[in-house]
């Protein structure tokens, strides 16, 4: 059995290097690096990011490069099909759809981002107070959230839009007035988890120092679901805005959003389908992009969740 090339010196005791042992034990590259590595493999999610970046850029330069603006009527040139002059054609008032589409992008993305941010802020405050204090405070706060959660979201938004004066900010406020609940629940759950002794103990036994532990293991682990929820709030807000526009409760003219543009185009769908096509296409594309990013993030941040 002896291997011929072995020398007697091979049988001297090995210096066990503690650090070495530690390294072998648990190759733990950082959580975010790991997540990013997994995310990068998700082609669909990368596509989503590229799309959002492109949409973001176009929302700023789209209008200027078309040589038109979003509000100039030109009734003589109403309902023109796409051409060299009007790349996406014109609407029933002769406004350039290309310029309006990118202006709409700005409005729709702004609504989405603002709604998500406001949800995040309220959700974090509410959820972390409930989660941090626990007990009775938590119970009552979450009971309130539960009751609000039980009422259909869109119904509430519609009722609010009926009584509030129309406007961009009213829209955002109406959307966030119950929209934050979901975020609050997630945040609370995460804060609870952070607090849970067991969880902290589990990482401590790996022998990490406390602050490093907090920032390297705990905070990232709790950030994951929050980020995912945040990402998925954006398409939801864009959807809600478009939905309200269809009911005539969207942003008031002369502001243009994809929702109001589609809704306006609906009347003449039979004759000028392109007027609906462009805004509708971009609504779908944006929702798709955010959805795949959100999914990609969920899969990347939570490796336990399926392969």
């Amino acid at each position: 059995m002896a291997l011929p090339q072995l020398k007697d010196s091979d049988f001297e005791p090995l210096q066990i290097n503690d650090e070495e042992a530690e390294k072998i034990a648990g190759e733990s590259t950082s959580y975010w690096k790991d997540a990013w590595r997994r995310f990068r493999k998700n082609k669909l999610a990368l596509f989503g990011i590229v799309m959002i970046v492109l949409l973001g850029i176009m929302s700023f330069i789209g209008g200027p490069i078309s040589g038109h603006n979003y509000f100039d009527n030109d009734l003589l040139n109403a309902n023109k099909s796409p051409s060299g002059e009007h790349w996406f054609g014109t609407d029933n008032l002769g406004r350039d759809i290309f310029a309006r589409t990118w202006y709409g992008a700005k409005i729709s993305l702004f609504i989405g981002l603002m709604a998500a941010l406001i949800d995040l802020v309220i959700g974090i405050i509410w959820g972390s107070i409930a989660g941090y204090f626990g007990g009775k405070v938590d119970e009552y706060m979450m009971r309130v959230a539960d009751v609000l959660y039980g009422v259909p979201y869109l119904l509430v938004v519609i009722l609010l839009m009926v009584i509030l004066p129309q406007g961009l900010w009213t829209l955002i406020i109406a959307m966030t007035i119950t929209g934050w609940i979901n975020m609050a629940r997630i945040v609370r759950g995460q804060v609870m988890q952070l607090r849970s002794e067991e969880y902290v103990m589990a990482s401590r036994s790996l022998g990490a120092s406390n602050t490093r532990l907090l920032f390297k293991h705990l905070v990232p682990n709790t950030m994951g679901p929050i980020l995912v929820t945040l990402t998925l709030t954006i398409p939801n807000a864009i959807f809600t805005e478009a939905f309200l526009s269809f009911l005539g409760l969207g942003v008031p003219a002369p502001l243009a959003s994809w929702g109001t543009m589609s809704s306006d185009a609906l009347q003449s769908l039979q004759y000028y389908p392109f007027q609906l096509f462009f805004p509708a296409f971009f609504i779908c594309l944006t929702m798709l992009a955010f959805n795949v990013i959100g999914d990609g993030m969920r899969d990347a941040l939570d490796p336990k969740e399926r392969k």
Binding site: F11, L14, I16, A21, I24, A25, E27
Partner: peptide, 28 residues
Amino acid sequence: PGSPPDLADPPKGCPFAARCPYAMKVCE
């Protein structure tokens, strides 16, 4: 003390070498 080897990159020698108090050079 210590924890089991990472089976994604298993040690070439004796799997216990990293934790074995009697480990010798050959074991690695």
